[in-house]
Amino acid sequence: MTSPDHEELRARIGAYVLGALTPAEMAEVRAHLAGCPECAAEARAIQAVADALAWSVEPIDPPAAIRQRVLSAVTSTTARQRVQTRGSWLPWLAAAASLAVAAGLGADGVRLRGRIQTLELQLRDALVQVQAGERRTTQARLVAANAERQLSVLADPDVAHVDLKGQAAAPRASARALWSRSRGLLFTASNLPAPPAGRTYQLWIISGRAAPISNGWIFKTDATGSVTTMFDTPTTLPAPTGMAVTIEPDGGTTAPTGAMTLVGSFK
């Protein structure tokens, strides 16, 4: 396929300044403008007209709440937290800018620098996207690793299990725990009501008449009141006879203080 000629590209300028082209067509026109002063002049002349179209619309006052939302959103973003100008491409751009100035561009050099700033931002966006991609990969790895740990508990021939029943505070709740001395504790529950503000669920292992043990085994439920989670248990844990879930202050406690929500005994 041959690239479009001057006449074709010139005919597209109107659509170009309105952004009414596909990305590929936009790129072709942009490349043409770089080499055709005649078309570039026309594009410049009508770009201002296209920009002015916004003023043909009647202004409408937005709901007052939006202003507040904008201002609270930015209060949490201090000036320092804004996207900073750093990264390995910067020296290149700086070099390009100085070359442009050195080439005798003068005032255009200043505009060029503005353009470079725009490109820097696009590069930053690209980097942010790359970082977001890496974050997602890390999250996926964590999820996979977690699933693997959960499977390893199930696969242990010595796994013990306990079914927990909802108590007066949550009669519809139920849970199941699978415990392997070498691989940890897999806990899954459903129909748990959301704990009151400032409170959290905490899991306890009961071992005969000794005080209940909880190594900070706190958990949150999702919107449907369900949870599936893994806890590490010390290999020296005394043989458990039962398990309970209580509601405790955020962060958990060293000994249960709240009412029991779920209780069960090992078989």
Partner: peptide, 14 residues
């Protein structure tokens, strides 16, 4: 970026 530089350098437009 290259195109922008080319535009600015050859046609002195912004």
């Amino acid at each position: 970026l290259e195109i922008s530089i080319a535009i600015a350098m050859t046609h002195r437009i912004d």
